[in-house]
């Protein structure tokens, strides 16, 4: 029996036909539906970029803020109302480039949010410049001699920082991506799901064909709890690219340290005049 999808938005999307973003959006809708969530319980946060338009194309709460700054905004919203399920959907340029510093520190904080990076290895919104994950040698209008800056490996960075959930997927594999998003959401703490996604307009190297020939799903023999193996697995890139849960770990979340589970959310708390009077009295 198929469950009712409350999240589907039937309006137009300003994404190219065939863009990997469509598949990621379907996966997000499916995961939330499978988890029996209601739109009002969910907050989708994004920065700026093609991927970052996603909160406009789903029925849920949204925060579409600044380029690179989705993670701090998501952190603030989650702390303000920890009853909300918070997902961040943005691109590789947004999260790994402009917002790179926040990516590092969001993992350290281990706030309970799920980050889905639409990783197309290119800047799509600005029409085809290299991104932090563009492969060496890729020629663009702003890298006419080919990319010679070492690509950023988000999975290795996340593993190094002991992120609790580090996964990679491929946008075409909707059922597989759905399962990974569900698992990421269910894992308490900061979850990263880096989703490889073809940009049909501006990335003519990493195409559907290119990814399809290379990605393979990790099987049960792979143990994501082993940090050094995870580190090795995350460096696999080229002829073969693993998808699945690369690394899993468990530690206290940010909110475990500051909010008791039964505490009312910050938005429901009030200041008391008596309390303020006590602060004033301390100064006599």
């Amino acid at each position: 029996m198929t469950k009712e999808n409350y999240f589907h938005y039937s309006g137009e999307r300003a994404w190219c036909p065939g863009c990997g973003d469509h598949g990621i959006l379907s996966s997000v809708e499916n995961a939330l539906t499978n988890l029996k969530k209601k739109p009002y319980e969910v907050l989708m946060v994004s920065g700026i970029g093609q991927a970052a338009k996603l909160p406009h194309y789903i029925k849920a709460n949204g925060f579409d803020g600044l380029h690179g700054r989705a993670l701090p905004a998501a952190f603030g919203a989650k702390v303000a109302n920890h009853k909300l399920m918070v997902l961040v959907t943005s691109g590789d340029g947004d999260i790994y480039g402009e917002g790179g510093n926040h990516f590092i520190h969001a993992i350290r904080r281990n706030i309970d949010i799920t980050l889905i990076v639409h990783n197309n290895q290119i800047y799509g919104l600005t029409k085809g410049q290299a991104s932090p994950t563009s492969d060496l040698g890729m020629v663009t209008k702003t890298q006419p001699d080919g990319v010679f800056t070492i690509p950023f490996n988000p999975l290795q960075m996340a593993i190094t920082l002991d992120a609790v959930f580090v996964a990679r997927s491929f946008s075409k594999e909707i059922a597989f991506t759905t399962k990974l998003i569900e698992e990421g959401i269910r894992t308490p703490g900061f979850s990263l799901i880096d989703v490889l996604q073809p940009c049909v307009s501006f990335n003519h190297v990493n195409t559907y064909k290119w990814y399809s020939e290379r990605v393979y799903q990790l099987d049960n023999s792979y143990d994501p709890a082993d940090k050094s193996k995870a580190y090795q697995k995350s460096s696999e890139w080229g002829d073969k690219i693993p998808i699945g849960v690369i690394y899993k770990n468990s530690r206290k979340t940010y909110l475990d340290n500051v909010v008791k589970p039964k505490d009312p959310p910050l938005i429901k708390r009030m200041s008391s005049i008596k309390g303020v009077e006590s602060l004033i009295n301390e100064l006599y």
């Binding site: 946060v45 925060f63 701090p72 905004a73 603030g76 919203a77 702390v79 109302n81």
Partner: peptide, 8 residues
């Protein structure tokens, strides 16, 4: 701003 948007 995230906290403010959420109502805190």
């Amino acid at each position: 701003l995230g906290a403010g948007a959420a109502g805190a």
